[in-house]
Design a protein around this nucleic acid. Structure first.
Length: 407
DNA sequence: TATGGGCATGGAT
DNA sequence: CATCCATGCCCAT
């Protein structure tokens, strides 16, 4: 009989009253552990007991339980999330994370679409190299981000508000992913190049913040989407566009499970602001619509109300097999569009729709487009006076050398 | 020197 | 008047 050694390096026992099985080794075999170490492993306190002084400790993004991510022994008990962050097993199970792993690919892929309005001359000039799809009157490239961990945090963040807010229907126990889509005529253009569109010297008063006119040029939109199944996926869909040749718009859309959220009707007061074409909720005009539900309707300034047309929404929803609810939209400034790749988010919008962040390092968001190209944004903030400036920062390497082969 | 992260300032709301 | 946010500047790399 071959001699056995406890594979706990801090133990190394070669005898024990009873050998126990530990983690799976690279060879596929199971680690041998002495009774004490094995018991600790079984009781999920192995790393707490033997690795407390080691590096690699993190906290479960949901329950803040300490998780040791620095050894193979802990691998079975953690779920590293796509967006960064890590969950303990129990949280992952309760949130349906595992199932997402197995079958989520296909459903995620469903909302991984690129949209582009090839009819927009302005966008054509930009030269969209990404897979495109015609949607409405704008170029809209929809990328996809899986931020599974964040959704429950949305829910916990919102407290009572969320129950009737835009995320009120998101339940932690349901399978959840968060999709982030960025829509640009060309992603590199959007991240480096929008300065092309955002002319600092242009008259800011011409910005489309207040008017309801159809944008003439590419815009940037963000959306949250949800497959029309039982899962709750969130997707941010950015569509790029420059209104009146100077500014880009950024809108955040949310997709919920309830179809009635798809097309929230603008309040009368809002309609009154618009043109005659705004009389119809299915207008093709860019009517600033209030956020889907009461929470943001009360908190967000009308300037941030999404202006995506109902036609575009319906097209998006159809193509993505998801229900999409517009959340907010922002006119991009020159600084947003600079090469630095720092997109300033309206604080209220960011706090409402993005995961809560307490550290300025923020949260990485991986973004995929339909081809599986992956981009990483960092959702972060900087202290500013007594407040914060919320930003989406594109990783510098991506700015210069995007992994995306097609861009 | 170039670049990017972080912060401060001031105009806009 | 307070807050937000666009932007410029400084500094570290």
């Amino acid at each position: 009989m071959a001699s056995r050694i406890c594979m706990n390096t801090s133990c190394g026992a070669n005898t024990t009253v009873h050998w126990k099985k530990g983690w799976e080794l690279k060879s596929g075999e199971i680690a041998d552990l002495c009774f004490d170490c094995g018991s600790a492993y079984e009781n999920l306190v192995y790393c707490d007991t033997f690795h407390s002084e080691e590096t690699g400790w993190r906290e479960c993004s949901l329950c803040n339980k300490r998780l040791h991510c620095g050894c193979s022994a802990s691998v079975p008990f953690i779920e590293i999330q796509d967006f960064g962050g890590v969950w303990c097993n129990s949280c992952a199970r309760s949130a349906g994370c595992h199932s997402t792993r197995k079958d989520g690919i296909s459903s995620e892929a469903q909302i991984s679409r690129a949209y582009n309005n090839m009819g927009d001359a302005h966008n054509t000039q930009l030269g969209n190299k990404l897979e495109t799809d015609n949607i409405g009157n704008r170029n809209l490239l929809s990328l996809r981000n899986i931020v599974e961990t964040n959704v429950p945090r949305f829910s916990s963040q919102s407290h009572s508000d969320i129950s009737h807010g835009s995320f009120g229907h998101i339940k932690p126990e349901t399978k959840q992913t968060m999709g982030v889509g960025l829509g640009f005529p060309n992603l590199s253009q959007a991240l480096n190049g929008p300065a092309v569109h955002a002319e600092p010297n242009d008259d800011k008063s011409k910005g489309a913040v207040k008017d309801m006119r159809e944008p003439q040029v590419p815009s940037l939109s963000i959306g949250l989407c949800s497959p029309s199944e039982t899962t709750s996926n969130f997707g941010l869909t950015f569509s790029t566009g420059v209104e009146e040749g100077e500014k880009c718009r950024s809108s955040l859309l949310q997709a919920g499970q309830r179809p009635r959220h798809i097309l929230p009707k603008p309040p009368k007061s809002n309609i009154a602001k618009g043109t005659d074409a705004n009389k119809s909720p299915f207008s093709s005009m860019r009517v600033a619509r209030p956020p889907a539900e009461g929470r943001l309707r009360n908190q967000l300034l009308p300037r941030y109300w999404p202006r995506i047309t109902d036609q575009e929404l319906q097209k998006l929803s159809g193509d993505l097999n998801s229900t999409i609810v517009p959340l907010f939209e922002k006119i991009l400034s020159a600084s947003d569009a600079s090469r630095i790749g720092r997109l300033v988010l309206p604080k209220a919008c960011a706090e409402a729709y993005f995961p809560p962040i307490n550290q300025s390092e923020g949260l990485p968001l991986k973004i995929q487009d339909v081809k599986g190209n992956e981009w990483t944004f960092q959702f972060r903030f900087w202290p500013n006076n007594n407040s914060r400036i919320m930003q989406l920062v594109l990783g510098a390497p991506l700015l210069r050398t995007p992994k995306n082969t097609g861009v």
